[in-house]
Nucleic acid binder design. Structure first.
Lengths: 102, 102
DNA sequence: TTGATAGGTAAGTCGCCACTTTCCTATGCT
DNA sequence: AGCATAGGAAAGTGGCGACTTACCTATCAA
């Protein structure tokens, strides 16, 4: 248990389509800055959002543990972290289907 | 591709804590009716929601393909369907880590 | 048919959330 | 120093979603 992240935060973070697209970009290439993400969202998806909006989305993703950031000079690089997603997968798996109970 | 369900619907359905608890109940026992779900949510979690509220949540879950229902007389039984969850899992998996690039 | 049970529908309220606008801080370059 | 770049913070707005209240339909039992 590395992050004291509530499941609530993870699901809420994933609820927004823009945030999901940000994750899509980061899975393609880690270590992007805010401006890079803005540019790619604009060119690839025609997203007409301001830099501030994307910045707020990144805060939400970080709070959910889905994105980790490292500061370097005036740049802040963002990395994808898929660990919290495992919570989702395992949560609603059938405990153990006994297979032969007619 | 069994249901024409948008990914948007799945993530939105999972965004609400009450709906997640409903899924928790269904993974424990399939085939519960609306009233059963209401009762169990109230007793186990102290959820003070009206029957109508739960009913609306079930509609959302069905639209997302996470719950399937079968009518039988005046009863309507609800079953969990975890297929849409696989979308979430596979979406942000790294394509193929080349492993040896130090 | 009457009454009870199981569920559906629709209007209305309220709070939250995404987004913009505006302004501010920090780092690097020359 | 001065300016541009990268990022952060905060107030305000608009819309959507969760919930309630109230009413309606359908099935079964007496």
């Amino acid at each position: 248990m590395l992050w004291p992240v509530a499941e609530e935060d993870v699901f809420k973070a994933l609820a927004d389509p823009t945030r999901r697209r940000i994750l899509d970009e980061l899975v393609e290439r880690d270590g992007q800055t805010l401006f890079e993400i803005c540019t790619r969202l604009a060119t690839k998806y025609g997203l007409g959002l301001t830099r501030q909006a994307i910045g707020q989305h990144l805060v939400v993703l970080e709070s959910a543990g889905l994105v980790r950031s490292r500061r370097q000079g005036r740049y802040k690089f963002h990395d994808l972290n898929t660990e919290p997603l495992e919570l989702i997968v395992t949560r609603w798996l059938r405990p153990d289907p006994p297979e032969s109970t007619p």
